[in-house]
Amino acid sequence: MMNEQKTHEKYDVIIIGGGPAGLTAGIYSSRAGFKTCIIESGVIGGEAASTDLIENYPGFPDGTSGLKLTENMEKQAKKFGTEIIYDKVIKIEKTNQLQKGKYKILVTNSGKIQTKAVIVAVGTKPKLLNIPGEKKYKGRGVSYCATCDGFFYKDKKIAVIGCGNSGIQEGLFLLRFVKKIEFVEFLPKPTAEKVLLDKIKEYENVNFHLNSALQSINGDGKSATGITINDNTTLKVEEIEISGVFIYVGLNPNTEFLEGLVQRDKNGYIIIDKNQNTNVSGIFAAGDATIDTVKQIATAIGSGARAAINAGHYTENTN
């Protein structure tokens, strides 16, 4: 939580979001001697922190847990002087101060804070399906975090919605606990990479419902007890009994607070140029919240480094 004293402090660079992109920007910016702070509204490490096993991040031949990886990034950023404030940025003030060379004002839940340059690294959040039962049973059978909640489904039958990389990867983790997984995918084929699909095919206790839409999550008022799915071709409706539903149907960028200031595409992803500049001078963006179509840690950190170096150049020309 931000205290009064900090509210009046001025920074060279403020990074909004403490995922891999933001932490990398923090490392580069503070190491280069800029007064740097990361504002994080949830968990340091972002999406990556709750990923159980990361096998494609260079330097770890046996894979690494997202938690360990991002904890180390945090340490490294702090070592060079990056401050971390737990708070949520709700607005970047739209004043004539947004001209080059002037301080920008960020509005957070607990105050205002000034900075020369801003790096927006807010990532994405899981897309909701907005079907009956999803909200009602959230935390009571409906989950978006396998590493957090898999434990509660020991020897139970569950459903995983979405057969992209996230759905299959998290499904593989959940198989350590659960008795059986019913996978549901809207498209005629799972879209996950071949390595993941080959792994999941080795299990006998998985079942795939392809070309099927999840219609509702059903329950007894207390917790989820089943799902209803609809086959897109035969229109056959099927009810399946399960104790838990893990939903991995895609992502939405956390960029609503930039409305009216920073240009975004029709899905809300921030439009950037090859130097991570947005349309507003001195506001940069990096990581999963941008129009970059590859959403991986390796790409997030690359863009975080680029944003920080360019924010540094910008800051040096600011008084």
């Binding site: 968990v43 340091i44 490490g45 709750s50 737990y86 590493t147 957090c148 434990f151």
Partner: peptide, 14 residues
């Protein structure tokens, strides 16, 4: 909470 739950670990100091 639990020790394997990253969001929980982060909530700890708070």
């Amino acid at each position: 909470w639990a020790e394997w739950c990253m969001p929980c670990i982060v909530m700890g100091p708070l």
